[in-house]
């Protein structure tokens, strides 16, 4: 289904971003090919969300290049990201709470037939939400009336409307219940099967293991290892996240294993 299943779809090279004296990202590389799920993991403050915002055009990278295939591109603003086919679901979801579900889904790309075509938009909203097995009672209530999980679903649904090539998900399962988490993971696999590239930020190693093909670890704004999910252990990922094999997490794990051996 994908047009270009071999070449690299999106590659970031030596991306740096500073906020004043703080180097949020330093020389970060990342690559995602069509039909691949790349998980980006890292501790708090590792630069994951900054990376997302660079991809979405919210922040401009201070240095480094972004390329689609062989073509170098610039993402100067959210509109550029849209045009390139990079759709982003932010951690704070970026929904307008005073607007209803349909209005949020089609915000910035309303369907028109002279005036706004509310009927078609509502119909397509229901179709989309049904594809995602979303449980939203009414699409004509303001988003403020929805639960956190329902809002997450709306945000993900919105990212899919523009037929993106790359979907960036910033902690998509953080606010979800068990069934909804499973739905989102299914959804991510469906995106991959459709030939989209997926970049998923997550804290949850179980989710990462469930769907990701590759894991990129960030630590203090720098790359700290790339792994194939099939070949890496959780301990190795944790070690890369925290920065050493001997740390508070491994010591605790060892202690518990020792206690269990007795």
């Amino acid at each position: 289904m994908s047009a270009d299943a071999t070449g690299p779809a999106l590659s970031l090279r030596r991306i740096s971003k500073n906020f004043g004296a703080v180097a949020a990202l330093t020389d970060v590389d990342l690559e995602v090919t069509p039909g691949q799920v790349v998980a980006v993991v890292g501790d708090n403050g590792a630069g994951k969300s900054t990376l997302v915002k660079v991809l979405a055009g919210v922040h401009r990278a201070d240095a480094g290049t972004i390329a689609f295939g062989d073509r170098e591109v610039t993402i100067g603003g959210p509109a550029d990201a849209h045009a390139l086919g990079v759709a982003t679901v932010f951690q704070d979801l970026a929904l307008c709470e005073n607007l209803d579900v349909v209005e949020n889904l089609f915000l910035g790309r309303e369907l028109r037939r002279g005036r706004l075509d509310e009927v078609t938009m509502e119909l397509r909203s229901w179709e989309l939400l049904r594809q995602l097995s979303a449980r939203i009672p009414s699409v004509r209530v303001p988003v403020a009336a929805l639960s956190g999980g329902q809002r997450q679903t709306v945000a993900i649904a919105r990212s899919l409307l523009g037929d993106p090539r790359i979907v960036v998900l910033d902690e998509p399962t953080a606010a979800l219940g068990v069934a909804q988490t499973a739905e989102v993971l299914n959804l991510i696999e469906r995106l991959r099967d459709r030939g989209l590239g997926v970049i998923m930020i997550s804290h949850n190693l179980a989710d990462v293991r469930a769907v990701a093909d590759r894991v990129a670890v960030l630590r203090l704004g720098r790359n700290n290892g790339f792994f194939d999910t099939a070949e890496v252990s959780d301990e190795d990922i944790v070690a890369a996240i925290i920065g050493a094999a001997d740390n508070v997490v491994t010591r605790r794990a060892n202690r518990e294993r020792d206690a269990g051996d007795e």
């Binding site: 929904l95 307008c96 607007l99 910035g108 309303e110």
Partner: peptide
């Protein structure tokens, strides 16, 4: 209520940052 211009007014008034990220 019936044009996308009107919709952007409500969106910006509700959450300007979300509107900006939606490409408005």
């Amino acid at each position: 209520t019936r044009t996308s211009w009107g919709r952007t007014l409500f969106a910006v008034g509700g959450n300007a940052e979300a509107a900006r990220r939606a490409g408005i």
